[in-house]
């Protein structure tokens, strides 16, 4: 069915507002359940292991190669005006402030956001969520809250690991390939690094973790129509999760460092 252009625009805008409103209500309801019993510590622990532990290889590799390529690229650029000594600082600041949180966030959005949407979506279409309700268990508390909290708590941990491995990657390339002095590299790395650089990255990570889990849960929870619906929910969870990571990355950077 084809609509007149003006009607199509209006329809699109209304649909957007509806989606934002529905998401906000879902987020509010889920978050409010975080503070109200009953709590499920065992489920929280399982999600923390799922997100924190099992994502380690993925974010570790991401961090390693990001740090390595960063050192290599900065060298080719900075050596043109003999500023090689700033490479350790460039690497550590880029990693802790930006690349660590964003790359880890994007990888986790792909790994964890997708898994959450697929699992909860399958539970929805096979009536397992309805079954929870009939067994006097609130699906928000049982399914959503542990995932949101685990995302919020574990992403900072993952980003800290990414930071360390990323700086290590820069160190490896600089020392073994570019011929830097190992002690001088470490000194330069630490000299200009401030607590705020790392802290801002961890705050970003916590926000990203919450948003990724929220997107995974939201799209899974509202999936409709069998396997196809679950597939669509998974795609939407990853895409919206990744986009929100990038948007909030800018907003938080602005909040922390804008003069």
């Amino acid at each position: 069915m084809k609509r007149p252009p003006l009607q199509a625009i209006g329809h699109g805008v209304l649909a957007l507002f509806e989606a934002v409103g529905r998401l906000s209500l879902f987020a509010l309801e889920a978050t409010s359940h975080c503070a109200r019993p009953p709590f499920y510590p065992r489920l929280l622990l399982r999600q923390m292991v799922e997100i924190g532990f099992y994502s380690l290889p993925v974010v570790g590799l991401t961090g390693l190669f990001a740090g390595m390529v960063l050192a290599l690229q900065s060298y080719t650029g900075f050596s043109r005006f003999s500023a090689e000594s700033t490479i350790p600082t460039v690497v550590v600041l880029s990693i802790t402030r930006e690349l660590g949180p964003v790359l880890a966030g994007l990888m986790v959005a792909g790994r964890v956001g997708a898994a959450m949407a697929a699992e909860i979506g399958t539970m929805r279409v096979t009536e397992q969520i309805d079954a929870l309700t009939t067994l006097s268990t609130n699906p928000h508390k049982y399914l959503i809250v542990p995932r949101l909290l685990a995302g919020l708590l574990m992403l900072p941990f993952l980003v800290l690991v990414t930071d360390i491995i990323g700086v290590g990657g820069g160190y490896l390339v600089s020392v073994f390939k570019l011929g830097f002095n190992p002690d001088a590299y470490i000194n330069n790395t630490l000299e200009y690094l401030e607590v705020m650089d790392v802290a801002s990255g961890l705050v970003k990570a916590a926000v990203f973790g919450y948003l990724i889990a929220l997107m995974g849960c939201y799209h899974g929870f509202h999936s409709r129509g069998g396997a196809q619906g679950v597939g669509k929910a998974t795609t939407n969870a990853v895409v919206t999760g990744a986009i929100l990571v990038l948007i909030f990355n800018y907003i938080i950077t602005e909040a922390f460092f804008a003069q």
């Binding site: 539970m123 096979t126 009536e127 397992q128 309805d130 079954a131 309700t133 009939t134 006097s136």
Partner: peptide, 14 residues
């Protein structure tokens, strides 16, 4: 809800 038990069409086991 505490008075009700339900058998779902495909059992809906977790």
């Amino acid at each position: 809800m505490r008075k009700i038990g339900m058998l779902f069409q495909n059992a809906a086991l977790f």
